Simulated scan of single mutants.
Amino acid sequence: MIKAKKASPPARPAPSTTRSIPTASSAAASSRAPPLSSEPHIDALALGVRTGLPDDLLHLRDAFPRERWTEALPETAAFWLQMHGGFRAQQAHMADAAARWRSGALDPRGLHAALIPTLQAFLQHLDGHHRIESGHYFPQFRLIEPRIQTGLDLLDRDHDAIHADLDALYHSAVAFHQAVAAPSPDAPDHANRLADVLDRAAPGLIRHLDDEEDIVIPLMILKGGSAA
């Protein structure tokens, strides 16, 4: 077992070159579109509300549905799906660690060893992935296929919401790490808080990954190298 006192605290997601990660005291405004509250249609599709995408955002997926995505995917599309698969696997691993903590199978040190290294990688890689998407790929996609503008706006807003979750995860994880490393008698309380934050963040992430794939993977397939 990795001793908590030798483990490093989670690294905070790197500051975005396109926007700041929202915090409890300061949320960065999106420069891409008006706030959600000014667009009722988008409001209904906010990440914490929607259960899928409406038909008008799925016309490319209808032209190239998921069951055909195994057919000679372009390299960028295959890599995109691989990255998303990694995020899903990390989320599942962290959920399992939290469940084992709640069942009594792990003590605080055991939870620290099982969770913190994965969370560290998750925070850094997901933030970097989103910055590349919003800063590089999405602007290209807007030029290649103007019909998916609304979908890309939605995905960018998802990124802002998810980054707020990443910030909450970071702060909860640091508090837990410090309590375990001390050691402090309130380590179990911090473990419970971290597990709760993980629970709240997971559904939005999975929803976003599924919906993003439905919007951008068919574009990459149908447009080939021009969408890479």
Rank of each mutant, 00 (worst) to 15 (best):
P74I: 03
D127F: 04
R157E: 14
G86S: 11
P40T: 07
L119C: 05
P35L: 01
G85I: 05
G104K: 07
G86T: 11
P108Y: 01
Q178S: 12
E145M: 09
P40V: 09
F64D: 11
A7Y: 05
Q120G: 11
F141P: 00
M83I: 12
A63G: 13
R109A: 13
L205I: 03
T51W: 08
I2D: 09
A179P: 03
S226P: 03
G85T: 10
I42V: 12
D165Q: 10
R68M: 12
P203Q: 11
P139N: 07
T76W: 10
A4G: 15
P185Q: 09
P108K: 02
D196C: 08
S26E: 15
A175C: 06
Q90K: 10
P22E: 08
Q90P: 01
S26H: 13
A78T: 07
Y170S: 04
S172I: 00
L209N: 00
D107Y: 04
D165S: 02
H112M: 14
D214V: 06
K223E: 08
P183L: 06
H163G: 04
A161Y: 03
D153C: 11
L57P: 01
I217V: 15
A24L: 08
D199I: 09
S16T: 08
A33E: 13
D96A: 13
T76K: 14
P13D: 03
E71D: 12
L219V: 14
H41E: 15
A161K: 01
L111C: 03
Q82E: 12
D214G: 04
D127E: 07
A179C: 05
A161S: 10
G104E: 07
I162W: 01
A98V: 01
L45N: 01
D167P: 04
I2F: 06
R19M: 05
Y170P: 00
L155M: 15
R12L: 04
H159T: 06
R207A: 11
S134H: 11
K3R: 13
R88G: 07
P117C: 06
R157P: 01
S172P: 04
L73F: 05
E133V: 04
V197S: 02
A113C: 08
M1P: 14
R142F: 10
P185V: 05
Y137T: 06
L169I: 09
N192Y: 06
L152K: 02
A191N: 02
R131A: 10
Q124H: 05
H59N: 07
K6T: 12
V174K: 02
P139L: 09
M1T: 06
W69A: 12
H41T: 12
S30P: 02
H125A: 10
H130Q: 13
M1D: 10
A201V: 02
